[in-house]
Simulated assay, not measured.
Amino acid sequence: MSKNKKNIFTSLLDKLNFFNKKNSSTDSKNIIKKKKKLDRKKKENILSKNNNISANLKIKEEDKNSLLFFLKNKFNTMRQNFFLVIKNFFLKDKINKKILKKLEEKLISFDISIKTSKKIIDYSVNSLSKKDFKNPSIIYKKIFFYMNKILQKSISLSKLSFNSKFPYIILIVGVNGSGKTTTISKLSKLYKDQNKKVLVAAADTFRAAAIDQLSILCQDNNISMISKKYGSDPSSVVYEALQTAISKKFDILIIDTAGRFHTKINLMNELKKIVSVIHKLNNNQLIDIFLTIDACTGQNSLEQTKFFNKFLKITGIILTKFDSTSKGGIIFSIADEFSIPVKYITTGESIKDICVFNNLDFINSIFKSK
């Protein structure tokens, strides 16, 4: 073979090798891309399985009276946002402390307190091995179960207690603008639909508008109400209402009170006086004292809960205005720091916009995308 032909042949071989290497490199890149895509799909499937933990807990999503159904229809924007934030963190190849710190900050942004957010993250990584950090689904599950464990601290084991002599009494308290009056109308209608005989006491005598508003709501829904003129002693309204409830055998007495800032000691003492009047008439039978919390107030809700609970021993929380502007995380902080049961969630202006709180429904509404 001549030297020129040999050079041409060698050049062709070099080009062929070059193209082979290039194709091989392209194939390798495609393989890596496909592998990453499959890995991501695998993680999404794992998360999907984790999201279906509720199936093991036997949640009936089709129940239109369930909190899960209520949240899906009234609170879907926040629910989806919360879910996407958590999901996106766990689609990474592995979890490290920096990522967990960012997740903690995200939890705080959803109105979960700094203290409770730190607890959630610390518990989730406690006793994990280095190998576990490469498996995000393990940490994901731990976060799910610990957040559910927090909510379990606020589960109420008590039920409505009735006897032949005294009505079941609910005292509604809260700061100005927390939605007490509208909540009372919703609560009254809820009990009335359960065939209970309900009486409402309009003990917010500091605002004539409050008495008028409650009167209209009660009239519209055929609910009995006891009231006195503007400026009357609230305790005297409660005294008369309880006497009426006992004599006419009402099943439930719901008492409205004036909104007050939790830092006003004299006004808080006035609530104590109302409780004292009740106990004198009902032979010290237990009563429920429900604190209404505006779900949009965020961390300030913890201070409200702290002070009202100190003075009155709150037995239940009603979260109001639970709409697209509220973030919902405050529920975890209240449960974690006070172990007071969340009784009801309300939203909107409709008298039917109230639902009994259920911790399993609530946690699943966050950890499920649909």
Rank of each mutant, 00 (worst) to 15 (best):
L271T: 00
K35Q: 14
E303A: 15
I86H: 08
E349Q: 12
I114C: 09
S232H: 03
N163H: 00
I293L: 14
N364L: 05
K229A: 09
N359V: 08
S127R: 15
Y140I: 02
S2C: 13
K6T: 09
N96W: 06
S127Q: 15
N51Q: 12
K37S: 15
H279N: 14
F18R: 13
G231P: 07
I138H: 00
A201F: 08
V356D: 10
D323K: 07
T116K: 06
I354P: 04
K368L: 15
D93N: 11
R207Y: 06
N52R: 07
L312N: 01
N221Q: 02
L67R: 04
S188D: 08
S66D: 08
F367L: 05
Y230I: 09
I345F: 06
S178A: 13
T257W: 08
K74E: 14
N266Q: 13
L160V: 14
D122C: 10
K60H: 12
N81W: 12
L253T: 00
F250V: 02
K64S: 12
K228Y: 13
F162Y: 03
N283F: 12
I59L: 14
G179D: 00
M78T: 15
F82N: 05
K106Q: 13
V85H: 12
D132Q: 00
D288K: 11
T346N: 05
I31H: 09
P167C: 01
G328H: 02
I265Q: 07
N4I: 12
K327N: 01
R207D: 03
Y344V: 09
D220L: 14
K153G: 04
I184M: 07
Q304Y: 01
A203I: 05
N65V: 10
D294C: 07
D111K: 09
K327G: 11
G231Q: 15
T346S: 01
S339R: 07
G177D: 02
S154L: 01
N300C: 03
T320D: 06
Q152W: 10
N65K: 15
L291M: 05
S124W: 02
G329F: 02
F367P: 00
I293P: 04
I252V: 09
N135R: 13
K6S: 08
S2R: 09
D204E: 01
T26N: 15
G259I: 09
S154F: 05
L312I: 00
D294H: 00
K43C: 13
K58P: 01
N163Q: 06
N56Q: 09
P341T: 04
E44R: 15
N359K: 11
I293Y: 07
I170C: 02
Q213A: 08
K130Y: 12
F166N: 10
I99H: 03
S326W: 04
V275K: 15
Y230G: 04
L199H: 04
K64W: 06
E349D: 04
G174F: 04
S215V: 07
R207N: 01
M1Y: 10
I86E: 03
C355M: 13
F166C: 04
K115Y: 12
Q243W: 11
I293Q: 06
K280E: 06
K29C: 10
V356P: 01
Y230E: 14
N266I: 10
K72N: 15
N284D: 08
Q213D: 02
S158Q: 12
S232Y: 05
T346W: 03
A210W: 06
D204Y: 04
N51S: 15
